[in-house]
Structures are given as C-alpha cells and as structure tokens.
Design a protein around this nucleic acid. Structure first.
Ligand code: FES
Ligand code: FES
Lengths: 167, 167
DNA sequence: CGAAATAGAACCGATATGGTTCCATTTCAA
DNA sequence: TTGAAATGGAACCATATCGGTTCTATTTCG
C-alpha cells in the first residue's frame, strides 16, 4: 500500500536524531538506545547510509557517525534512495529489473512517469532539517529556500510541488 | 522502495481501459485479454473495484463491468485505496495495525503525516481521465479543473501540489 | 434448463522484508 | 603491546506479504 520500508523509516529517524547535533559524531550504540532500535538494526542502517555518503564514519575506539552535510542539504528522498534503492512506483519504472510485464499494451505508462516524478520531488523537497524541526504550528512557511536545492519549483514533469508550509 | 503493488498497477490499467468507453459494460474476459492479464487476476481486481463502488457490475449472461462515475471524477488515489487499502507510508500512520514500534521517541512522526498527506494529494490530484488520455506534449496544461474535485489546491498539510501540466 | 457471466473465499508458492549473527578491520588508550 | 571499542561487510534465517490460481455459489438471460 505504498508504504515505506522500515529500513527507510528507521533510517530517517536516526538521521533526524543526528541532525540535532550535526557537529558531533555519535556511536551507533547510543543512537540505537535513544531511538529505541536494536543495535544490530541500527548498525546495518548506519552502514548503508555511510556508504551512500550521507554519513561520515569514524572507526576505532572513539568513533561514531555524523552527518556528511548540513541537515538543510540532505533530503528525505536521498535517505530513502540510499536505503531502499531508487524510488519507482511501478516495476516498469525501475531502471533495472524486468518490468511489470504488460508494457506493450499499457496505456498508462507515460503518465506513471509523471506521477512517480511528482512524488519523488515531493520527497526531495523536504530536507532533513525540516524533518527534524518540531512541528511549528505558527506563522506562515518559514520562508527558507534550502529545499529548492533538490526540488525545482516547477519541474518539466507536470506535477509541481510549490511549498511546504507550516501546519 | 515505495513501490505500488501490482494489484493497483493492473487495476489502474484496467480502469483506464474502461475509461475509453465509459458507457459500455465490458466482461472481465475481454478486459483481461486486451490488457494482457490473466483472467483470474483480472476477475479478482475487478471484483475489488466493484466492491469499492468504483465499478458497477452486471451479472448474468450479458454482464460486465463499467465505470461507476465519469472518468473525470475518479482519482488514482481512490483506485489505489480500493485495492491496497489506505495510503500510509509508515506503519504508524496506518489507522489500524500496530504501528512502527518507536512512536514514543520518534521525532519525525508529525512531519511524516504531512509528507504522507502530500503524496496522497498528489495521487488524488490525478483523475482517471487524465491518466487515460494519451500524453499530450503540446501546449500548456489543458487548463481543466476536474482534478480540483479531490485535490485542494492549497491544503493545510503543508506540501502543495499545484498543477499537472502537459509534459 | 443451461451457458455466461459476476461474487466471494480459500488456497498456495515465491519473494522480499525485517532482523540477527559472525567475522574482519580500524583506532586509540591503558 | 595489547585489547577494548568502534565501524565495515557479508551471510544468514524466519516470516509476512504478495502475486496468482482454484473452487464454489449466485445471478441473468436466451
Ligand atoms: S504499468 Fe507497467 S507498463 Fe503500464
Ligand atoms: S516513524 Fe513511526 S512513529 Fe516515527
């Protein structure tokens, strides 16, 4: 049902935790504890994120993980793609793999691409910083433009995400 | 990887086929054939769609399925929800079920709700009619307003989908 | 009556997912 | 020098979910 894998789910939780202290490097163990996740799972996720260059890791006795970039410059889409592979609603949109099997007669494929792109952009339009900030219920959108980094205001795909305002 | 189930995938294909002749009722057998799907699978899907009141069915010898409403008034989101249940990225957003397990310490949940709503709206903003129409590569967005039916232009959730233009 | 269709449910096998375990490597400090 | 604390990387497993089929009951009409 269009659900996110738990890997990504937890991954984002861990990243938001790290975003609260972008400077310090925290070891997986404390991240696990603070996030109520099993150390094993946590390790797995952090390793994947590090391999995707979203985290930098320090080995050895006082090691740990820290964000590789400022939280304003990391998008939710990046995290998801690092953990779950490319965002592709239908199998026929996935670059690799075999496809959905009915490409030949499918009347909807090109439109699928647009929709897929639209939600990709939606995810790419939310930064880790926004995710980490407590929900602010006051005032208009915090102006800001960081998210523009990855989400063009008006992409050529059709669907356009314009703003992530305050609740 | 945020993928759509095949049920929904095929379901939309079948619906778009029906949208080409909104008046006539077609039997499952011909829908299956024209869409290159197994009759069994096709039957299953159509039954679900009928139960969700997206299709009307006629039993008996000259029976078949037809759209319950004009294709302009059926959204992709409706089809997906009919076949795969509510759209909920993370398990903790799903009304039923147990949740993701870390609700207590999760710093991201309220933001998840917004994102989830945003992509829900994205899906609800595309009508079956738009999906069925061949991709038009010319001219600006076909103006149109049908999609407004289900997708408020500026929802309170934050992320706003404004337009599904032409490619 | 019987063929043609849908309604509904049960059933089954494969795959992906969530999660663990094990071992190798790096680093630092006692 | 040695070992504890950390990450790197991979294999492994159990189970839920998903894609798909099969079977039976019911409706409709010729
Ligand atoms: S859904 Fe895969 S080609 Fe149309
Ligand atoms: S992801 Fe489930 S509560 Fe945060």
């Amino acid at each position: 049902m269009i659900r996110l894998s738990r890997l990504s789910d937890y991954g984002i939780v861990l990243m938001t935790r790290l975003a609260r202290e972008p400077a310090r490097a925290l070891p997986a163990s404390v991240l696990a504890q603070e996030s109520a996740l099993s150390p094993a799972m946590t390790g797995k996720i952090l390793k994947l994120l590090a391999r995707a260059d979203l985290l930098v890791s320090q080995r050895g006795v006082h090691g740990g993980y820290a964000l590789a970039r400022a939280p304003e410059r990391i998008t939710i889409a990046e995290i998801i793609e690092a953990l779950d592979g490319p965002i592709a609603l239908t199998s026929c949109l996935r670059p690799t793999a075999e496809g959905c099997g009915i490409e030949s007669v499918c009347p909807a494929r090109t439109n699928w691409q647009r929709i897929n792109q639209a939600i990709r952009d939606a995810l790419a339009g939310v930064t880790l910083a926004e995710m980490a900030s407590p929900p602010r219920n006051f005032g208009p959108a915090p102006s800001a433009s960081p998210r523009r980094a990855a989400a063009p205001a008006r992409d050529p795909a059709g669907l356009v995400i314009t703003s992530l305002g305050a609740k």
